[in-house]
């Protein structure tokens, strides 16, 4: 949660100094609070990632230079023009101003701060716990997302392994070599994910509740009604904005039936939850800090 607040604050900030401070703060938090869980070890990965991102940002800025004629060029490189039609040209390299580089650096720093913040969130909180707080109706989507988040570091690891192994066999040069790298990794990851899916199914994932057909249809209709109301409300807002009270009340009705729909779809599953997350006092403190930080970020104070 705090990580999220940090991340959002960082994305709203353009001052490089503040960004560095935010990044450093994230790391301090990690050092102060981390425990022995595997997540806490992932922080190294995020630090590395943050470094890579800054470097890539700067590099791209130099290659895909968007400026045409900077006032005070810092770096002058030969310009390569890619004509893509009469209206559009894409410049590669060319002169680059200090401002532009600073902008890229700030941009990179911001991303890095965000990554560190996410890293912090990942190291301290455990993304799996987030799953437990999603509404029941979105359980499946949340599962897919959590599978994705878990697979991402594994993907990077197996990419490294396969790249090393590929060095042992003769390979085509350049772009043709791409499938040789991607296919084994993808095959591997798909195999892994299928094992996981098999495990979920073998333990009962996908069982349907004993909801009656009529209930199901009713649920579906509520969703449909919500959508229709939303659509009509939106339409009215656009076409006859003079009577906003009516438009808004239709939209609110749509909103309500949508919420009911979400609740009803959740009732359809028979899943139970054994451990429900409980709030500890420390959590409140964290929420408070997070809120404060967000308020600061939104008011723009951090930019000065």
């Amino acid at each position: 949660m705090l990580g999220l607040a940090f991340a959002i604050s960082a994305s709203l900030t353009v001052n490089p100094l503040t960004l560095s401070v935010l990044g450093a703060l994230s790391m301090l938090f990690v050092l102060a609070f981390r425990d022995q869980s595997p997540w806490s070890r992932s922080v190294v990965f995020y630090i590395r990632l943050a470094g890579i991102v800054i470097a890539i940002r700067l590099l791209f800025r130099i290659i895909f230079n968007l400026e045409s004629d900077p006032a005070n060029p810092l770096l002058v490189l030969p310009e390569v023009n890619l004509g893509l039609g009469d209206l559009v040209t894409m410049h590669l390299f060319g002169s680059i101003s200090a401002e532009s580089l600073q902008a890229a650096l700030t941009d990179g720093l911001r991303l890095a701060a965000i990554i560190l913040a996410i890293g912090m969130a990942n190291s301290l909180a455990n993304p799996m716990k987030l799953l437990k707080t999603t509404p029941g109706a979105l359980y499946e989507i949340a599962t897919a997302i959590s599978i994705a988040i878990n697979l991402a570091p594994q993907l990077i690891a197996s990419l490294n392994r396969v790249r090393r192994a590929r060095g042992l066999r003769g390979q085509s040069k350049g772009i043709k070599a791409l499938p040789g790298l991607v296919i084994p990794v993808l095959e591997d990851t798909i195999d892994q994910s299928m094992t996981l899916a098999a495990s979920m199914s073998a333990r009962g994932f996908g069982r349907k509740g004993t909801q009656s057909k009529a209930r199901l249809t009713l649920t579906r209709f509520t969703g449909l009604a919500g959508l229709v109301l939303i659509a009509v409300g939106a339409f009215l807002l656009i076409l006859s904005p003079t009577n906003q009270v009516l438009d808004l009340s239709i939209t609110v009705a749509g909103l309500l039936s949508t919420v009911i729909y979400i609740k009803m779809s959740a009732l359809g599953s028979l899943r139970t939850r054994y451990l429900v997350q409980k709030f500890r006092t420390g959590d409140y403190a964290i929420y408070l800090i997070a809120a404060l930080l967000l308020a600061l970020a939104f008011s723009g104070v951090l930019n000065f």
Binding site: E140, T143, A144, I145, S146, I147, A148, I149, N150, L151, A152, L155, L186, T189, I190, S193, M194, L196, A197, A198, M200, S201, F205, G206
Partner: peptide, 14 residues
């Protein structure tokens, strides 16, 4: 199905 979810997970991660 869990298979779709797992495949979704793979592609989203990639």
């Amino acid at each position: 199905s869990s298979k779709h979810l797992a495949l979704l997970g793979v592609l989203i991660a990639l």
